[in-house]
Design a protein around this nucleic acid. Structure first.
Lengths: 81, 81
DNA sequence: AGATATTTGTTCGTATGTATC
DNA sequence: GGATACATACGAACAAATATC
């Protein structure tokens, strides 16, 4: 369990952790990232907070989401077009 | 987007707008009124402010609320009993 | 076809903290 | 101190999509 700082919202801190894991390749392109339920368990946060985390990552293009399925790491765009 | 006056709280001004719409039949009895999230978007207010709006309308009997569903325009009472 | 479980989407209820007036 | 207003956070409930059995 991580210890949350008080100088930043929890949802931002969790988002930063997931962003790091994606960058490190722990979560690979196309593979599923933890569900909101998983995040609740791992970080001890409420579901709406987990939802906010995923929405942030989705809006910055790091993941995409399919209802009923989960969220997945986006394919990296290499800008070759 | 409406422009808020400074002589009255925002939640009262938004409540007045919704009250007007109900009176005008834009929101009809039994039909759903905008969610708190909708009000956040339309009026550019915080969720707690939107919640305060709905509570005011609920307390005056203009609407009723079901958790997880939303709020609905009350059925008019014609006093025929 | 139906039931069940999982997962995300959305809704309201509530509490706390901060800042401003 | 109180009212207003914002953001954050947790809780609870309903809904829809997906997959499996």
């Amino acid at each position: 369990m991580i210890e949350f700082r008080e100088d930043q919202p929890r949802w931002q801190q969790v988002a930063a952790v997931l962003r790091q894991r994606i960058g490190d390749g722990i979560y690979r392109p196309g593979s599923r990232v933890p569900s909101e339920n998983d995040l609740m368990q791992e970080f001890g946060i409420a579901r709406m907070t987990a939802h906010k985390v995923m929405r942030a990552l989705r809006e910055e293009g790091a993941i995409y989401t399919v209802r009923g399925m989960g969220s997945f790491v986006s394919q990296p765009s290499d800008g070759s077009d």
